[in-house]
């Protein structure tokens, strides 16, 4: 069952730069997909289309049954509640504790405190941070902060997890740990995962579907299993 579908998608920025040209993609429910490519190839723009930070200039984007390009700014939160986003720079609320950060998507949505607590604890347990719930982000290491970010992204039990270079700021050992957490989310919860990365080691080790982009177009789309070792240019 397909969860994400892009048809003839173009994105031209107001300054005239064509970030995406004629992108056609389908991602199935429960799939784990890497998007790789050199800097400026359009992979981040593609991610932005998926969480509706940008609208396609032309074409059609459907995420989890929602027609993204027709979604009005005011209604974007409806899409965002269905997905989790993980960023390279974590983007945690600095003045809130780990618990409050993870609880945030639920509490700001008006969920009852009694329902929030077990969900937050479950998410923190999954990322292995249950003992740090009272810490503030600046008291955590980079790897721990990223795990808080993952916990926040999955606390809503989203069907889709978008990861924009989640290991970009982390050392190889911690990256491996984080990838382990994300992989287990994919396997245990059946969450669809789309990950943009620069890290060849991760891509080579994980052996998942790999979409390669260059100059705003998809240059290769290698399905899981048919994978060959990727080498950076």
């Amino acid at each position: 069952m397909k969860f994400i579908s892009l048809k003839n998608c173009y994105k031209v920025y107001p300054n005239g730069v064509t970030a995406l040209a004629d992108i056609n993609l389908e991602i199935q429910k429960g799939e784990f997909v890497f998007i790789i490519g050199p800097t400026g190839c359009g992979k981040s723009t593609l991610m932005k289309l998926l969480y509706r930070e940008e609208k396609p200039t032309k074409g059609n984007v459907i995420v989890g049954g929602i027609n993204v390009e027709k979604l009005r700014n005011r209604k974007v939160y409806k899409l965002r509640r269905k997905l989790g986003i993980i960023f390279q720079n974590f983007r945690l609320l600095p003045k809130q504790t780990v618990y409050e950060n993870v609880a945030f998507p639920l509490s700001s949505n008006g969920i009852k405190d009694t329902e929030i607590r077990p969900k937050v604890l479950k998410a923190l347990e999954l990322v292995g941070l249950k003992d740090k719930i009272k810490s503030f982000p600046d008291q955590l290491s980079g790897g721990e902060q990223q795990r808080v970010c993952i916990a926040r992204a999955i606390v809503n039990e989203p069907k889709l997890l978008l990861c924009d270079e989640p290991t970009g700021n982390l050392d190889p050992d911690v990256s491996k740990e984080i990838m382990g957490v994300i992989d287990s989310i994919n396997k245990k919860l059946g969450t669809t995962i789309v990950m943009v990365t620069h890290d060849d080691q991760i891509v080579n080790r994980m052996k998942k579907r790999v979409i390669t982009m260059d100059n705003g177009v998809v240059t290769s789309d290698v399905m899981k299993g048919k994978y060959k070792k990727h080498e950076s240019n």
């Binding site: 939160y77 409806k78 965002r80 983007r91 945030f104 700001s108 949505n109 926040r152 809503n156």
Partner: peptide
Amino acid sequence: RSEIEIMRFVGSSNYAI
């Protein structure tokens, strides 16, 4: 403003922000 941006990313409605 980054706080507001994060709120938007995690799916807070404008009212809740």
